[in-house]
Design a protein around this nucleic acid. Structure first.
Lengths: 230, 230
DNA sequence: AATTATTAATCATTTGATTAAATAAATTGA
DNA sequence: TCAATTTATTTAATCAAATGATTAATAATT
């Protein structure tokens, strides 16, 4: 597999296989998926799974490499901008109310981006794969964590730390960052419960607006309260 | 299966199989588990899976019946008490600060109970099974939802609604309730990420105390902020 | 011509389920 | 009470289908 020399069409074949694999691994899980259905959906021969990826497991890992790269690509423009915003923040007096407002805006931007990421039809399958790895980590988890996950956490920790006037390494900052993500993540990880409890049929544009609205209120209330509390 | 007449040992055998199944389904997922290992772990013959439960799927459903019953049993004392507290709340003036404090206490009690539920070694496996159902609901999900899940949501909605001076059916109440649960649920559903981000080795007593402490602060800050905002 | 990619056919295991026989427990009748 | 009988439970052996992987032949690309 992964030979140095390759034909022109090879990349296409591999991509077709990875896309099929995302769909089927996402739907059925690693064990529930089988190579024949995988190959059929990709429109290629069964033996190509072993030929290109060394087997089912290799294909599974390739899927996570692909997803990590895609998420990075998708978040890059936003995170580049926010890095700049954060830089300008660090030179500002912490008691400046304007600066607090700005850090709040950065937090909101990141959380809204995460909401969008959770919601898109395409990424919905990614999140399923990621959730599976969170419960039973395989070597694929490292690919994810060293990629987009730690990136998002690091980025979000900074404005939270600034707002709470603490070091990003402070446990309170870390926990609060996780709590913020949790408020959103619940809509994917407890998807079925959310649908039942709200009476929604699906989580589409209208529902996302409601969620964003609520999250916006929550973030302001939570951080304002926390920064007063201690 | 499930014959009307049964011998004395039958209940023990079934329970041994269910307990083994919880462990193995939780670890490997429905598809990843296989009947031979299941039977071996339970210390019974392979054919008993079909005999007692009609097959692998029947055993899987029986697992969820068992879990739902266990969670109910475990939360019953607390919820009975809180129902009473809620009843006394409903007769009180909403502007009474004491009443607000009390509703906050009820919320905290429920969330702390949920944290404990997430944390126990035994229940950890249950949550894994529940999470799997959230992603790809099978008939087992209905067993869960009609049982402990909707119960917890209904119960938690009431003090939240009281505090926010809204109807429990109001979407803001529903979303806030879910957000509160999400803040906690993240510690299980993103378990591996939490461990990496915090540097924890495991989530045990010490870590649970930190989480509770933070959640306590969050709930106060969040609800106070929200009830002022609107 | 040589290398790389793809295919059809096949192999060896695994797996869920079934069957028929054996064992254990409950029930019956004296 | 206690053997005889019925019923329920458990076991070992086996089946048929599914599955991941491999092989040898063919096609495409360089």
């Amino acid at each position: 597999m992964n030979s140095i020399k390759s034909h022109k069409k090879t990349a296409n074949t591999r991509l077709a296989m990875i896309n099929a694999a995302i769909e089927i691994f996402g739907r059925d899980g690693y064990h529930g998926a089988n190579n024949r259905e995988l190959a059929k959906k990709a429109g290629v021969n069964l033996a190509l799974i072993s030929y290109h990826f060394g087997g089912k497991e290799g294909l599974y890992l390739a899927v996570f490499e692909h997803i990590a790269a895609q998420i990075k690509l998708r978040l890059e423009p936003l995170t580049a901008q926010l890095q700049l915003d954060l830089l300008s923040l660090s030179n500002v007096d912490v008691d400046d109310n304007n600066a607090k407002d700005q850090s709040l805006k950065i937090i909101e931007s990141l959380l809204f981006a995460y909401i969008e990421l959770l919601a898109t039809e395409q990424t919905a399958v990614w999140i399923k794969l990621i959730l599976a790895e969170q419960q039973a980590p395989s070597p694929a988890f490292a690919i994810l964590y060293r990629g987009p996950i730690s990136h998002l956490l690091q980025l979000l920790s900074q404005p939270v730390a600034f707002y709470l006037q603490k070091n990003p390494d402070h446990m309170m900052v870390k926990l609060t960052t996780l709590n913020l993500i949790g408020q959103i993540q619940i809509f994917r990880s407890f998807r079925q419960t959310v649908l039942q409890h709200t009476g929604w049929q699906d989580i589409k544009a209208d529902e996302l607006d409601l969620i964003k609205q609520q999250i916006s209120l929550n973030v302001q209330a939570l951080l304002a309260g926390l920064s007063i509390a201690k």
